[in-house]
Nucleic acid binder design. Structure first.
Lengths: 237, 237
DNA sequence: ATTTCAAAAAATGTATAAATTTATGTTGCA
DNA sequence: TGCAACATAAATTTATACATTTTTTGAAAT
């Protein structure tokens, strides 16, 4: 509906650093629980403290950074408990948003969804055929697809909240090096959810969507690369 | 369960300004859509720009302040549409959280709820008997009561989101000078919700809770003091 | 009436100073 | 000799003062 913003681009340094920091946090280049020292940040991102503080405060609100009074900023830590809780919450809230979107369904929205699903299906999940290599374009379209599913619920704040949960969980996905993903036919799952929505079967759509999220979480929860305690526990047994 | 924080108090200026600004925003002393100029803020709150920027950024995340790139901070504007949307969202999300809280019910939680309701019932809604005068202690206990209702759902992020919605809606209540409130026996409504929870009747509890929120919104939606367009429309008719 | 240009006001960013926390090393005591 | 407590020093966060850039405002000219 709306094209890419024709606005002259914000252009403030704070926004630039915010974008760069955010990318580095989501990708895992800035490791969980790492301390974010001003010294390091100013040198790395070549900017002053004011824009950095601004960016860090915004990221704190996004749940990607943690601030401890008078002892600095830290990359938000990860844990199996948090992953489970975030997933649970996302399932609850997106189920709600999806039902409301469907209850207020319009042809225009259904067409948006068809388009989003189609575009996503035409882009490869991985850049490399032999090994898994994150495809930014796929991630972008994936994001739009899920945003569209809940986007017709009629609540900006609810949509924004879902976006935050999505970001936080996206970081877990990126941190997890699990190559099991490609074996899942996520494309089929997206198509199935769309079909349930188009057929007006809310219960089924919600069931498929939550299963979709839960499966992803289950894989990551078993990843020793991100949760070393799993390895320790296995050795004890 | 946990008493007042025994921590040595944050004590950074940014936190102090944040608290003061927040109070002034919620109370309406800083009027909606007013521009928040640094000059004015530094003089009013007697502090530098760095702590102020920090506070303003946090308040932006709370939805009480709006930031427009390169043209400063503004008190978030109010509108009938936003009030309706916030209320709708709050009903949806708290219904969800309440159901989950009840599904995971424990004696300890039920006792917490009984206590919260009891304490709230023992404090007068208004400081003055003749005219309505906001009682901070009642507001505090009211907040705790509603927080308790949803507090056992098992999701910190969901609780935090409900808190944000509550704050934003609280500002509408404070902005509205409607004296119609005292005529409502809100105390009875709180007691009825609690009883429905204790009896395990989730559908009833949710119905009472959402009706509670909706009634409040309906009163404010008709308040000409906060929405002048109502007066204009009436004159046209 | 509209546009252009210049002056001002205000937001953003840098550099420096103050206050607080963390780390280090020494002294006193068991 | 080992350990704990205290005082000191280093590092880091927080805050202030100053400089730069952008936006807004207002007047003059087309």
């Amino acid at each position: 509906m709306t094209a890419a913003s024709p606005l002259p681009v914000p252009s403030t340094q704070a926004s630039h650093v915010y974008d760069r920091l955010r990318e580095d946090l989501l990708s895992g280049r800035l490791a969980p629980s790492r301390k974010l020292q001003m010294r390091f940040l100013t040198e790395t991102y070549q900017t002053g403290q004011t824009p950095l503080r601004e960016a860090l405060n915004r990221l704190t609100a996004d749940g990607l950074v943690e601030v401890r009074e008078q002892r600095g900023f830290y990359v938000k830590d990860v844990s199996r408990a948090e992953l489970a809780e975030l997933t649970k919450t996302r399932c609850w809230v997106e189920a709600l948003a999806l039902r409301e979107s469907m209850a207020a369904s319009t042809p225009a929205w259904e067409e948006q969804l068809v388009l989003a699903q189609h575009r996503l299906s035409r882009v490869p999940r991985s850049l490399s055929a032999t090994e898994f290599e994150d495809n930014p374009e796929w991630e972008r379209l994936h994001r739009i697809y899920h945003r569209t599913l809940i986007g017709h619920c009629g609540s900006q704040s609810l949509i924004a909240f879902c976006g935050q949960l999505a970001d936080q969980l996206y970081r877990y996905r990126r941190l997890s090096i699990s190559k099991a993903f490609p074996s899942r036919h996520v494309g089929d799952e997206h198509a199935a959810i769309m079909e349930a929505v188009l057929s007006g079967n809310a219960d089924l759509a919600v069931k498929l969507l939550t299963a979709h999220y839960q499966r992803t979480a289950d894989v990551i929860l078993q990843d020793e690369a991100i949760f070393p305690e799993l390895r320790d526990k296995a050795e004890q047994t």
